[in-house]
Design a protein around this nucleic acid. Sequence first.
DNA 1: ATGGCTGTCATGGACAGA
Length: 264
Amino acid sequence: MIRVATWNINGVKARIDTALEWLRQDGPEIVCLQEIKSVDEGFPREPFEAIGYNVATHGQKGFNGVAILSKLPLEDVTPRLPGDDDDVQARFIEGIVSVRGGILRVVSLYLPNGNPIGTEKFSYKLAWMKRFNAHAAARLALEEPLVLAGDYNVIPEPWDCHDPKVWAGDALFQPESRAAFRELAALGYTDALRACTDAAGVYSFWDYQAGAWQKNHGIRIDHLMLSPQAADRLTGCEVVKHVRAWEKPSDHVPVVVTLDLEAA
DNA sequence: ATGGCTGTCATGGACAGA
């Protein structure tokens, strides 16, 4: 089995001890990180390498930034979402690993938040989603197992949040945001969590403010979207909720998919 | 709550997050 996680760690320097603790206990073969908030040269590669991970990063100063950690050798690593050479925000990195009988392709993505609506931030979000969906569509032609792992900043359905009324005016829950996310399913991608459960109230983010964690006022915005060839190998998907209660937690928790694949 | 935390950069407080 190969497990692939997505986790917005909200700052790799602030989260290094927490991240290493989880990875030592229960580290999946592949971990897609978002919001590393670090330039590539500042990323603490050594402690991750010391516990068996190869490290690929696409960082930027202060905010954003994505990475892929992999116990299997990473090949063909490509930063930047195609489609706009003027987009300087570090929100996308893609790579492949060899598995028995072929390859597994993995993307770590950090989709723009988009708030407040009615501004260029929201139009940037929608433009980014359009570019991302075009890339996702093109990748289907490869007919490979592919995991699009990331912080999508989209609440797919009303039962993916505690109170839909609270999110009605938010970029994460706009009809346009949700429609763009649904396009991935229309293309043939499978939401790994939703393939495993239809339970309401499964969340991946709880705000630091207002006792959101204690009240379980969460939202589900971190998703693992599987190509048909990956979905055929799906055996499970779980939210690693307990790390939200640790000291110095990220406001997001890992979501992990298990695929019936073996290292080459 | 017109943002109640948190992280970054930088060393005070703006900016970004969701």
